[in-house]
Nucleic acid binder design. Structure first.
Lengths: 332, 332
DNA sequence: TTGAAAGCGCTACCAC
DNA sequence: GTGGTAGCGCTTTCAA
């Protein structure tokens, strides 16, 4: 814990005013070359580094953005967080990270904490059903970019993946490979992603003239849930040739379950997921899934936000829908 | 972007001085009950929330801690980051996250960014060989807790895992299961974790009176590296019955490589790792590995730091060495 | 129990 | 080109 060197110390030692020191710090207006160099010399001599907090207070911006997401230890989010972080750092911003586990209460306290810290903007991956009001509250204080999970009725930048289309294509693939009796394990239904994926499945089935409805289980994106529903499917001897899950983690669980029960995947039971987390390409049989550009989503969302901060705030809300891609591997 | 309500507005509306408002905000000294309630009413009426930046400037603390780590999208770190974050939030702190990819230059700019932001403390997972000077520089400005990878010659809190012992035990297990011709793929050798793990291996071999030296490959903790060294091992027909890797990611790569080449794991080639990332228990054959309590490490490190911030800074540096545990699964 | 006022370290406007 | 100075919004003596 050293002594804090302030702009005043530099000014005194260089024999100039603090205004001048501030000018060389910010290169904000011309300073005579010799003065400039003298000040710079003193700065490095004293090891001075500006107090960003003080600067923030007087400028009204902090150079910090916040990211609110459900759980960094869920394998889908690290890439996303990395994308946000990289884009932020590239523009000289710094990132505060908040985990909510999808609880409205944690989302609320995260929003509050970030706003108190006067972050310049927030990237928000919603997890609770109270998303709208929280996004709205946050938007009153700073720009917000909603990412991954769509939030209706708010006006802010939004970056998502075309979940409907991804799911539609996956379903078509499933139909192409001969499956007609499909079980589907959903994600939490208050999330747009979950709803869209289910809708994609249904519409594709309908479009193909399949009248048999898929067997739908209400899941929650967790590995264990995939595992147990799969076990149920076996136990009940359900007439199903394929289990398609709303995310990879559940698909991995389901696959494990089938394998543990001695079923051959994909011969006796096909399994498909959604996300394309790292694990999915590494296990065997490798999982057929819909790849989401998570890193890219993070980058784009952060860039939307930062452009809005740098240029005027009065840009119209932008939204970007990224195209997911079907990755056919060995599980289907 | 709403109007910022300040303490002044509250004071005026409540007909008191800003000092009094500050007092009710901080409950720092007695305020007459009726005044207190009136102020509180105005606060919620106006939707006032204190500007943390201003508070930070005058108090000299920010309530923010920084975490510097190599890469949040490397599966070992999310749990650790979550641990740090949870402990921080529990104490009312907020977390800034920086990724360095192990580059000294990025570590340096991260340290700088955090110090400028006046963070109250830093949790540092070192990745470069310039760790010592960076930790030292950071320590001049705020408390630092070094985590996971040990840094010699600095005086700060430190939380690590007993890598030596973990590796020793793994080796004993390998010997117990009959392996004598062991190949070992190291991590980056400038990391204490890598060195300790190698030392554990060697010492255990020596202790068991095995004179044949292990075949050591210099790795870098990456999946692909495990994959290619394994392929080399096959290609060269090296006389080895077991490949032990300094982390799970490489072990997973090696295993994949063997499997792809038609070798049976563990019958024809055993594989062992270190870390116990989620994937390791999910693949088949499940990976034998040394489990590290990553989440707990994060929690403890953050708590060391925060206790130091709350109580006096003059605590002697503490260090905690957690015990890893051998998890025997199917790959050995 | 409350108010006035001096900072915290910096930026930015206004003079010279 | 450079200096003086009024804030930024809050905390914290010091008085009253």
């Amino acid at each position: 814990m050293g002594t804090r060197v302030t702009i005043k110390d530099v000014a005194k030692k260089a024999g100039v005013s603090i205004s001048t020191v501030s000018r060389v710090l910010n290169k904000s207006s011309y300073v005579k070359k010799s003065t400039f160099e003298r000040v710079e010399a003193v700065i490095s001599e004293l090891g001075y580094s500006p107090n960003h907090i003080a600067r923030s207070l007087s400028k009204g911006t902090t150079g910090i953005i916040g990211a609110i997401l459900p759980d960094i230890s869920n394998p889908f989010f690290p890439a996303l967080a990395r994308g946000i972080g990289d884009a932020a750092v590239a523009r000289g911003y710094t990132l505060i990270l908040c985990n909510t586990d999808g609880y409205a209460s944690h989302e609320k306290s995260s929003v509050r904490a970030l706003l108190e810290k006067q972050v310049d903007g927030i990237v928000f991956v919603t997890g609770s059903s109270r998303a709208v009001e929280l996004v709205r509250e946050a938007s009153k204080a700073c720009p917000v970019a909603v990412i991954d999970r769509e939030v209706q009725g708010v006006s802010c930048d939004m970056v998502t993946v075309d979940n409907y289309r991804g799911s539609f294509e996956m379903t078509r693939h499933l139909l192409n490979t001969g499956h007609r009796h499909i079980a589907y394990i959903t994600g939490p239904m208050h999330l747009s992603t979950s709803r869209e994926r289910l809708r994609g499945l249904r519409d594709c089935l309908a479009a193909a003239g399949i009248e048999r409805q898929p067997l739908v289980f209400n899941g929650d994106f967790k590995y264990d849930t995939g595992y147990s529903f799969a076990r149920e499917i076996i136990r009940l001897g359900l007439d199903v040739t394929c289990v398609y899950c709303a995310n990879d983690l559940m698909a991995l669980g389901a696959m494990r379950s089938f394998l543990d029960s001695g079923l051959k995947v994909p011969e006796q039971m096909a399994v498909a997921g959604f996300d394309d987390i790292a694990m999915s390409s590494l296990i065997r049989p490798a999982l057929t899934t819909i790849a989401q550009p998570a890193y890219q989503m993070g980058v784009i969302a952060a860039e939307f936000l930062l452009e809005r901060l740098d240029n005027g705030k009065e840009l119209a809300p932008r939204s970007k829908i990224l195209e997911p891609v079907l990755v056919i591997r060995d599980s289907t």
